[in-house]
């Protein structure tokens, strides 16, 4: 049998005109849902990116005493390398550290002249961020009781900050996911309701179609297409709103605050495709559920 796409679309549009109020409610919900999803995807990605860069920076810094010699450095490096869960040990001499700081903050270091207040430093990367505390403890309280090596001045402690940041990130992500899930559920229900009302408004058509021998899928298609049109239209509206917001608010801000531009997030075009796909999927799901429950063909 022929798949009469033109006929289905005409029937779907005719139904939407007759069924304008619920169609509009579903459209509005889909639009709001997709706007929220469209805002949250980049935010979640940004926070996740920030969390990941923090994670990868989770390391233990070991500062040597000012009077430490090259021999001391070499010995400590060997001792650090054999500790359990240590992936990498990177040495930064006091001269390298000074050069680095001079580049970042020339004015402050100009005043210091030739004095170098910075110590020789070892950056220790654990095999996994969760071993940070263990590695740190192994240096602070070695088997000999005290510090691993007498020429070590200090061991850095970023752990608490790291822990806090990771907690906040997880909280943001869970909240965003919950909100998105709730909104998507509401959209599915509202689309389902729209289709149910549309079925009710068109029960005569359905009755006639059954009498003259239309197949089940021929009867269903216009309703599915009606749902998909609502979903796709909602996605387009959401995209327009998001696009205007991006151009009017986000882009000027990004020029002033590197923070907004910095984290890598999804580019705009793939985001749009995701939104359209989500809109269509949500409405197909909604109409499918409704047809299954209310159209016994």
């Amino acid at each position: 049998m022929r798949f009469s796409l033109g006929f289905f679309i005409r029937e779907a549009l005719r139904a939407m005109r007759r069924n304008a109020a619920p169609s509009f409610a579903a459209l509005a919900t889909i639009t709001v849902t997709l706007i929220v999803v469209g805002v949250f995807i980049p935010i979640v990605q940004a926070t996740q990116g920030a969390a990941n860069s923090v994670r990868s920076r989770v390391l233990v810094d070991v500062y040597m005493q000012q009077k430490a010699t090259a021999a001391d450095d070499a010995r400590v490096e060997r001792e650090l390398r054999v500790l359990p869960h240590v992936a990498r040990v990177v040495f930064e001499s006091k001269r390298q550290a000074l050069a680095q700081q001079r580049r970042q903050n020339p004015v402050a270091y100009e005043i210091l002249g030739n004095i170098n207040p910075l110590p020789d430093t070892f950056h220790i990367y654990p095999t996994n961020p969760s071993y940070v505390l263990g590695v740190r403890a192994a240096i602070l309280h070695s088997s000999s009781g005290g510090m691993l090596d007498p020429s070590i001045e200090k061991v850095s402690n970023h752990t608490e900050d790291t822990q806090k940041l990771l907690t906040v990130t997880r909280f943001v992500m869970i909240t965003a996911a919950l909100l998105a899930a709730l909104l998507i559920a509401a959209s599915v229900l509202l689309i389902g309701n729209t289709i149910r009302l549309s079925l009710y408004a068109r029960r005569r058509e359905v009755e006639v179609m059954k009498l003259v021998g239309a197949t089940d899928w021929f009867i269903r298609w216009p309703f599915v297409i009606e749902g998909v049109i609502v979903g796709a239209f909602g996605a387009v509206l959401a995209i327009v709103v998001l696009g205007i917001t991006k151009l009017a608010v986000l882009d000027p801000l990004a020029n002033n605050f590197t923070l907004i531009a910095a984290p890598r997030t999804i580019p705009f075009v793939p985001l749009l495709l995701v939104l359209v796909a989500a809109g269509v999927a949500v409405s197909a799901l909604g109409s499918g559920i409704s047809l299954r429950r209310f159209l016994r063909v």
Partner: peptide, 26 residues
């Protein structure tokens, strides 16, 4: 099949009501 209450679609013309039976059967 023909019924006492006609079962016509009120928002379609005579032509469209008859054509409908053919449209929905492909």
């Amino acid at each position: 099949v023909v019924f006492q209450d006609f079962k016509l679609l009120p928002n379609r013309t005579v032509y469209d009501n008859v054509a409908y039976a053919l449209q929905v059967t492909g």
